[in-house]
Design a protein around this nucleic acid. Structure first.
Lengths: 246, 246
DNA sequence: CGTTGGGTTGATCGACCTCAATAAAAGTGG
DNA sequence: CCACTTTTATTGAGGTCGATCAACCCAACG
């Protein structure tokens, strides 16, 4: 979103103008995240509020049940959203990536933990300041609301998927969805980057690690995908989409 | 919410004052729905916009994929939210009841159909007018946003439930959740009203009708619930909550 | 070189689905 | 009100997909 206060890879790579907003121009999240709702001068106000921060793999951005004092806009990397059930079982709510805003609903407390899967850079917003900004710029609340609604739709679709699908269908849908989400930031690509473990995928899809593993090898044997380091390459999109039947 | 333009059971039951807002006072949805965000004078504006309407069981309020020109605030009755998967399978996203607002996300199109399970009365709001009102009263957007966030949390919790729970756990969680939701409008009660069919419950929980039926009889044999017309009576809340382990 | 954590593979078991029959309830028309 | 159909619910028998338990592989790392 903006790269004012250092740490940003982008700042290091491109020669950034002196202006404090201008860095947003080079931010991959700029056009797809909440920032897209803002005019040039409003972006300046957001800029004032933002604090650039970085996390390393396995670092926790925030804990489930903790007070949500800070909201995060992810500018690069991937974060897993983890919820622990009362009986100790672990569930993954989802994976957040470039452009995703964590804290969309502006709820008082985090309902899941956020854990970095890769190097992650974020723009952090303190709750109070952000709340004031939202009051000041109705576009921003509109945008937040629209994005929350979108998330709600995604969650409801995911519910439907988890309900009555076979393991293969779930995994294929997962792969295609990851590709689509990644394409928003990086263009369409047959390479799906999967920085998370099989266990994470299992907990996300409501399956076991063993089943995920078996399903992957099954897809490989059928020449639908090829396993590569940190991900898979989709070989036969047509048949994959037929299986998913989205 | 308001009962201005006739048809309302409430209007027939209580002698309503002449004032056009005042009817909201007798509306069961008044304190728990979006209306709760509004001041007295703002409620008047909402009142202007609202059109009272009723639906009979099996009537469709709106169809999946249709343009969402009207939003609905349910003042009594129950509505099932149905999504049809590409392969023809049916999924229930949820059940909407008194106080629920359909169209929270203000998306362009409905992502599921709404079908009346009982006699349903609603306050209808045309999209354009409602959108203007939202622009006019920031509280209202805030409230909409908060409720959308709440729905999102519910959906994510439901995802977690569907993931890794046994049939018994799912059904028990369903029953307890229905009771809790109903209690907001009617006080705590051991009688859970279930106007939907077993098929509906099955499609909601990602199970088959047979499994739902078997699970119910199992719960009855264990003296945890008693089946009554149009619902169940919870007998042993303690053990039920232990099974749910929410 | 042993250790550790993630990933794969195999064998077995069980929960839930599927198919099928029956029962109960809710409409329908005379 | 009663026969009739249609829908919904229950119960049974058998099959299957994914979980469980267990062994093994492999790469990273001290």
């Amino acid at each position: 979103m903006n790269n004012v206060r250092g740490h940003s890879n982008i700042v290091k790579l491109v020669s950034s103008p002196a202006s404090s907003h201008a860095n947003c121009e080079y931010c991959k999240a700029r056009t797809i995240s909440i920032c897209a709702a803002l005019e040039f001068d409003e972006l300046g106000a957001l800029d004032q509020l933002a604090r650039k921060n970085c996390f390393q793999p396995r670092e926790t951005l925030f804990h489930e049940h903790d007070a949500a004092n800070v909201f995060y806009n992810i500018t690069s990397g991937m974060v897993r959203l983890v919820k622990v059930l009362p009986d100790g079982r672990r569930t993954l709510i989802g994976f957040a990536m470039t452009g995703d805003f964590l804290g969309l609903s502006m709820a008082d407390r985090h309902v899941y933990s956020g854990e970095a899967l890769t190097d992650v850079s974020v723009c952090e917003f303190r709750r109070d300041g952000f709340s004031d900004l939202v009051d000041q710029y109705p576009h921003l609340l509109r945008r937040l609301h629209a994005l929350t609604g979108h998330e709600l739709t995604i969650a409801q679709t995911q519910m439907a998927i988890l309900g009555r699908r076979t393991a293969v269908e779930k995994v294929v849908i997962f792969l295609l969805t990851m590709r689509d989400r990644w394409s928003h930031v990086n263009g369409s690509n047959l390479l799906v980057v999967l920085p998370m473990s099989r266990m994470d995928i299992a907990d996300y899809l409501g399956l076991t690690v063993e089943t995920i593993s078996r399903t992957f090898t099954q897809l490989v044997k059928q020449k639908l995908v090829v396993i590569v380091p940190n991900g898979v390459r989709l070989v036969d999109i047509g048949r994959l989409e037929a299986i998913a039947a989205i």
